[in-house]
Structures are given as structure tokens and as C-alpha cells.
Amino acid sequence: MTLLLVVVGAAVGAPLRYLADRAVQARHDTVFPWGTLTVNVAGSALLAFLAALPAQGAVMALAGTGFCGALTTYSTLGYETVRLLEEGARFHAVANAAASIVAGLGAASCGAALAQALA
């Protein structure tokens, strides 16, 4: 049953990641990967929120592991950062890595704080 919950969550999270990434990136005329940054930061906030809630189990399998796991994408972050370096956009590559780490950790802190405030 847990495996099925993870699969269902991932089946929703992966297409949402693609659609959100494309929607955000279409609004910016730059090589900086705003779409990936956006989904990773949002996913970090949501996962930390879920992890800080008292109820776990099925909710965490569906929404945490499945949905957030498919929504966020460390591999794309790595690929896009390397691509930026290869294209000579060194500033954008460094900014992408730094912003992803700082914003992701900040979003996770905010998500956890929100869950604790609501609990």
C-alpha cells in the first residue's frame, strides 16, 4: 500500500514540476533556470512542513516521498548548473547553486516553522 501511495504522489508531482517549470521559465528571458529554482524551493517548503507535522505514515508516503520527491529535482539543478558553466555563464551557474541552497534551506525552515505554529 505504501508503494502505491508513493507512485500516486509521484504521478502528480512529476507532471506538475514540468508544467510549473515551463510556466515560470516562459516568463523570464534569461539563461537562469528560474523554473527549477521555483519548484525546488516550493518543494522544500512543503516537504519540511509535512515532516514537521505530528501525523506521518500514509500522508508522508503520498505527499512527502511521492509528490515532493517528484516535484523537486536535484538532478536538474546539477545538470543546469553544469550546462551554464559549459556555456560560459559562470555567474549564473554560481548564482543558481547558491540560490538553490540558500532559498531551499530558508523555505524548509519556513515550512517547518509554519507547521509548528499550526500544530
Rank of each mutant, 00 (worst) to 15 (best):
residue 2 T to V: 14
residue 2 T to M: 08
residue 3 L to W: 15
residue 4 L to T: 13
residue 4 L to G: 05
residue 8 V to Q: 11
residue 9 G to F: 03
residue 10 A to Y: 04
residue 11 A to F: 04
residue 14 A to Y: 07
residue 14 A to S: 09
residue 14 A to E: 12
residue 15 P to Y: 11
residue 16 L to W: 15
residue 17 R to I: 08
residue 17 R to W: 02
residue 20 A to H: 07
residue 22 R to M: 14
residue 22 R to P: 11
residue 23 A to F: 15
residue 24 V to D: 09
residue 24 V to R: 06
residue 25 Q to C: 00
residue 25 Q to S: 15
residue 26 A to I: 00
residue 27 R to V: 05
residue 31 V to C: 15
residue 33 P to Q: 06
residue 33 P to H: 12
residue 33 P to D: 10
residue 35 G to S: 11
residue 35 G to K: 02
residue 36 T to E: 01
residue 36 T to C: 04
residue 37 L to G: 02
residue 38 T to A: 02
residue 41 V to N: 06
residue 43 G to K: 07
residue 44 S to W: 09
residue 44 S to K: 08
residue 45 A to R: 01
residue 46 L to V: 12
residue 48 A to Q: 09
residue 49 F to H: 04
residue 49 F to N: 04
residue 50 L to Y: 02
residue 51 A to P: 06
residue 52 A to G: 10
residue 53 L to E: 01
residue 54 P to W: 09
residue 55 A to P: 12
residue 55 A to M: 12
residue 56 Q to T: 11
residue 57 G to Y: 07
residue 62 L to C: 09
residue 63 A to S: 09
residue 64 G to Y: 08
residue 65 T to L: 00
residue 65 T to D: 01
residue 65 T to P: 06
residue 66 G to M: 06
residue 66 G to I: 08
residue 66 G to D: 01
residue 67 F to H: 00
residue 68 C to E: 05
residue 70 A to L: 05
residue 72 T to R: 05
residue 74 Y to L: 14
residue 74 Y to E: 08
residue 75 S to A: 05
residue 78 G to W: 11
residue 79 Y to L: 13
residue 79 Y to I: 03
residue 82 V to G: 01
residue 84 L to E: 00
residue 85 L to Q: 01
residue 85 L to T: 06
residue 86 E to R: 02
residue 86 E to L: 12
residue 88 G to F: 08
residue 88 G to A: 05
residue 88 G to C: 03
residue 88 G to L: 00
residue 89 A to G: 14
residue 90 R to C: 02
residue 90 R to H: 15
residue 90 R to Q: 10
residue 91 F to V: 15
residue 91 F to R: 15
residue 95 A to T: 03
residue 96 N to H: 10
residue 98 A to H: 14
residue 98 A to Q: 03
residue 99 A to V: 10
residue 100 S to M: 08
residue 100 S to W: 10
residue 101 I to W: 03
residue 104 G to T: 09
residue 106 G to C: 05
residue 108 A to S: 13
residue 110 C to T: 12
residue 111 G to V: 12
residue 111 G to W: 06
residue 113 A to M: 11
residue 114 L to M: 05
residue 116 Q to L: 08
residue 116 Q to G: 03
residue 117 A to N: 07
residue 118 L to S: 02
residue 118 L to P: 04
residue 119 A to W: 14
residue 119 A to R: 15
